[in-house]
Nucleic acid binder design. Structure first.
Lengths: 150, 150
DNA sequence: TGCGTAAATGAGAATCAGTCTTATCTTCAT
DNA sequence: ATGAAGATAAGACTGATTCTCATTTACGCA
C-alpha cells in the first residue's frame, strides 16, 4: 500500500469499501508520507497546516475506519493517547522500543520472539488475534548525553 | 512482599519512604489479597465496601506512589483504563494473555521470550527498564462457547 | 508524650482523549 | 442528474485521571 497519489488512494479506499472522501484521502496521504507515530491531535494539527480543515471527530472516525481496514495501525504507548502509523506493505508485524528520555521510537522485528508468542498461546489453548509489545528504556543517544554509568 | 498484617504493611511502606497512612495500608492489603486486576474505580468501590472511605483522588495518588515504589504493578490492557495488581515476590516478570470475548486475563512467563527481548535491546544499544507484552485473542472457554471453526 | 512541619487527604473542579448527536453535506450507483 | 446511504462539522458529552486548595495526619524531635 505505497499509494501516494489522490487517484491511487481513492482506489485503495474503494477497495476497502470506504467512501473516498477528501478528508480520508488527506489523512491517508499524511500517514503514508511519514514514519512518525502521530497521535490524533497531531494529525488534526498537521491536516490544518495543510489547509485541510478536517474536524476532530472526523479524524477519530476516519482513523477508526482505516484501522478496521488495516490501512493504518493503532499503537498504544501507554501514555494515555493512541498513536497511528501507516501499516506496512509486508504483513510483517513489528514491535517498538520506546525511549523514556527523548520519546524516540525504534522499530524492531524478531522472528524468534513471535514464535515464542505462538508457543505460549498454544500452551494455553489460546487463539491470538493481535499483540502489543513495547520495551521502555533509554536509547543509545540518551545514554551518551546523560551517562547512567553510576 | 507477602505482608498482610497492618504492622507488616506499615513496615513495608516505611521501608519505601512512604508514610504509612490507613488509606495506603487498606489499598495494599486489598491488592495483596487477590489476583484480580482491578481498575481504579473497582478499587475505590472495594475499599468503600470495607468502610474504608478513601477518596478517588487518594486512590489514584496512592496507586501512583505504590507503583513508583514497585509495590504494585500498573497494567494497560488498552481499553482506556489502567489496572493494578500486587507485584510479585520473586522478581519474575510475567505477561498477559487477554481474552477479547470474556475479558479473562491469563498470566504467563516465558524465559526464552525475555531473553529475546534482551537480545533485541543489545542489538539497538538500548537499556531496557520495563516492557509490556499483551497478547489479545480468544481463550479456550470462549472458543468452546462460540466455535470459531469456520 | 506533645508539637510542628512536611506530606497526605477529601471534595470537587478541571483536564484530556475520545465519542456521540444532529443537522447538513458528499459520494457514487443508477 | 438524482437520491439514498454514508460522511462530515461543531460542539456537547463522557469517563478516566489529575489538579487545587483547604484541612488533616504521620512521625521525628524536644
Amino acid at each position: 500500500m505505497a499509494a501516494t497519489t489522490n487517484h491511487e488512494l481513492k482506489k485503495v479506499l474503494r477497495e476497502h469499501e470506504l467512501k473516498a472522501t477528501s478528508q480520508r484521502i488527506a489523512l491517508l496521504k499524511l500517514l503514508n508520507s511519514t514514519n512518525e507515530h502521530f497521535d490524533a491531535e497531531e494529525i488534526y494539527f498537521e491536516l490544518h497546516k495543510q489547509q485541510k480543515n478536517v474536524s476532530r471527530a472526523t479524524v477519530y472516525r476516519s482513523l477508526e475506519a482505516l484501522v478496521d481496514q488495516q490501512l493504518v495501525s493503532k499503537l498504544d504507548f501507554g501514555d494515555g493517547r493512541m498513536r497511528y502509523e501507516r501499516s506496512r506493505e509486508d504483513d510483517e508485524h513489528h514491535d517498538h522500543l520506546i525511549c523514556e528520555q527523548c520519546g524516540k521510537v525504534i522499530e524492531f522485528f524478531n522472528l524468534e520472539m513471535e514464535a515464542q508468542q505462538l508457543s505460549v498461546c498454544e500452551d494455553h489453548d489460546f487463539i491470538p488475534s493481535t499483540h502489543t509489545m513495547y520495551i521502555f528504556g533509554i536509547c543509545a543517544e540518551c545514554q551518551a548525553l546523560e551517562p547512567v554509568g553510576k
